[in-house]
Design a protein around this nucleic acid. Sequence first.
RNA 1: CGGGGCAUAGUGAAACGGCUAUCACGAGUCUUUUGGGAAGAUUUAUUCUGAGUUCGAAUCUCAGUGCCCCGACCA
Length: 402
Amino acid sequence: MKQSNLFTKTIKENPKDEKSLNSQLLIRAGFIDKLSSGIYTFLPLGLKVVKNIEKIVREEMNEIEAQEILMPALHPKDNWEKTGRWDVKEMFKIEDEELGLGWTHEEIITPLMKRHILSYRDLPKYIYQIQTKFRNEPRAKSGLLRGREFIMKDLYSFHENEDDLDVYYEKVKQAYFKIYERCGLKEKTYLTLASGGTFSEYSHEFQTITPAGEDMIYICNKCGLAINKEIKGDTCPNCNSKDLKEEKAIEVGNIFKLNKKYSEPFNLKDEKGKEILMGCYGFGITRAMGAIVETSNDEKGMVWPFEVSPFQIHLIDLDNKEISEKIYDILQNENYEVLYDDREDKTAGEKFNDCDLIGIPLRIVVSKKTGEDKVEIKKRNEEKIELINIKDLIKNVERFFK
RNA sequence: CGGGGCAUAGUGAAACGGCUAUCACGAGUCUUUUGGGAAGAUUUAUUCUGAGUUCGAAUCUCAGUGCCCCGACCA
């Protein structure tokens, strides 16, 4: 994409009201725009990041046999009265119409599956969606980390017995680790024991360490498991070690064994009248985006991991347009996603600063200095600049993306 | 929902109750520039809303609304 065509502008100074790093950087770089507290527009660059994270999540969900659907955001009151959750404060209500905006989907998926799971032969089933959730948060905060409207992946699984649920639960856990790895969050994300709700002893959260987080977790220095403050004792429940390190973290995923909690009120039973067991597995897409920015940045701006970056390569032209256009064509022919800074009214300094702020992982500079047959190549997270021959360009770029 | 803070141009700031509301950045036009936010000229406002006090309000008072932060809450 030609940057001269991008309608968003970067801004130099931090917006006065934004205190969290992710909102400051994302707004300054033109990834998102705040409409109201906890409500954001995703601009072209930001939307590309959202789509990239969604793609990763989708691939890993499909890998564990989950099927994608899309449920409505408008929910009838009746469904929610069956579980006694119509009057929770999270629900945005449209009272006159007896409708509410969905903040989770157990109340929709359970009656839906009742029409499709008629016997043990129809089990197990794994269904997910990626969809906008609405939560009437008493206090939206920290940019994308806690919104009132946000994008979430929610997966629900349906099982004949506990063993089957346990096996799939474990599979989802592993899929989540892959997602965090591909999102560049693995290093700072810990599997965390949390309270389990009604039927199971624990649930598992995936907590990313960041000062912007809102939970306190305790990481066991011996086995690497983390424990949420709400259930913390003196020792690690896994290995009994007392060597626990306190950290602030943001929950970027949560997996739960629901067991019969929702199959009971909705009468989701097999042919013998036995309740079907359920699991649910959430992943905050836009929250993960915020968490990536919080954990991957420097004083100049964001530093996107490869797979989530809005573009793979930032090509910068400094008054050597003929060669720049040629490089742009070469890269596009190899199917690289390129943001091409072809702007003629910007100085080199402005282009470099915008480039660092936006944070695309690979930078290529074409200028009078680099001449007719060479270009500069630099990684966002390294200082080193290499001068390479244009005929070796693709080879060098490939090396970088391996 | 409790507590605290803030609200002035697109962005960030300034202005004792008193002159035509000031400055920087951005953006527009023109000229000169061009490897880390370049220079000059010129243009760019319903001071959040409503009421009140006052000869006079961006400034004081009351109410509202919005935003940020701390806490509570948080499948």
